[in-house]
Amino acid sequence: MEYYCAYQERCYKEVEEKLYSFSLNLAEKEAILTHLIEHNFINEERFAKSFVRGKHNYKFWGKNRIVNELKFRNISSRIITIALKEIPEETYLENFHLLSEKHWNSITERKGQKKNKKFVDFLLRKGYETHLIYEKLKELEK
């Protein structure tokens, strides 16, 4: 389990699910989890920061999607807030504009409601804020 945690950042929930697959008894699971936490193999804050950087820089996810994914992994809202500071605002907006312009140009529909809907839906799935999306849509429609 140490190797499993050292190979890639893991959150408590992921390690717990992995241990569940080994069909150990409760005492053994607790002992292993305690050992991993005490020896810093599991660190929720470190995991969250790494997750935020990776998902934004490589998958270009927006803050909404990142927050939802971290909540799904039972990360506390305090840690989520700290982790989101890993994305500088300028970088976030720059990535948003690059992604939105690239997607706008890749949509084969002519200008109109169908193209607008595809554009908005894509960016909502990526997790960007609605006010950013609609401001960019107005800018690109001109």
Rank of each mutant, 00 (worst) to 15 (best):
12 Y>W: 12
60 F>Y: 06
22 F>K: 15
129 E>P: 07
9 E>C: 01
69 E>Y: 07
43 N>A: 02
52 V>T: 08
54 G>Q: 12
130 T>I: 11
55 K>R: 14
39 H>E: 02
129 E>Y: 05
68 N>C: 04
67 V>A: 04
68 N>I: 05
133 I>N: 09
90 E>C: 03
74 N>D: 08
13 K>L: 04
72 F>W: 13
36 L>Y: 01
124 L>Q: 07
133 I>S: 03
110 R>D: 13
82 I>M: 12
69 E>P: 11
32 I>N: 00
120 V>R: 04
8 Q>W: 04
46 R>I: 14
87 I>P: 10
102 K>E: 09
29 K>D: 06
132 L>G: 13
100 S>E: 03
112 G>F: 02
72 F>A: 06
33 L>E: 10
77 S>P: 10
96 F>W: 13
59 K>L: 15
37 I>L: 03
92 Y>N: 11
124 L>N: 01
55 K>A: 07
61 W>A: 00
51 F>R: 00
13 K>A: 02
13 K>W: 00
58 Y>N: 15
74 N>W: 09
30 E>T: 10
93 L>N: 10
82 I>P: 04
111 K>A: 07
46 R>D: 03
78 R>S: 09
140 L>I: 15
112 G>D: 09
97 H>G: 00
132 L>F: 08
111 K>T: 04
54 G>H: 15
124 L>G: 01
70 L>G: 04
17 E>L: 04
43 N>T: 11
91 T>N: 01
73 R>Q: 06
31 A>M: 11
30 E>I: 04
127 G>E: 03
123 L>V: 14
17 E>S: 08
115 K>I: 07
8 Q>L: 06
51 F>Q: 06
133 I>W: 12
28 E>R: 13
91 T>L: 12
81 T>P: 06
125 R>H: 14
56 H>T: 11
87 I>V: 14
106 S>Y: 05
84 L>M: 15
11 C>F: 04
102 K>F: 06
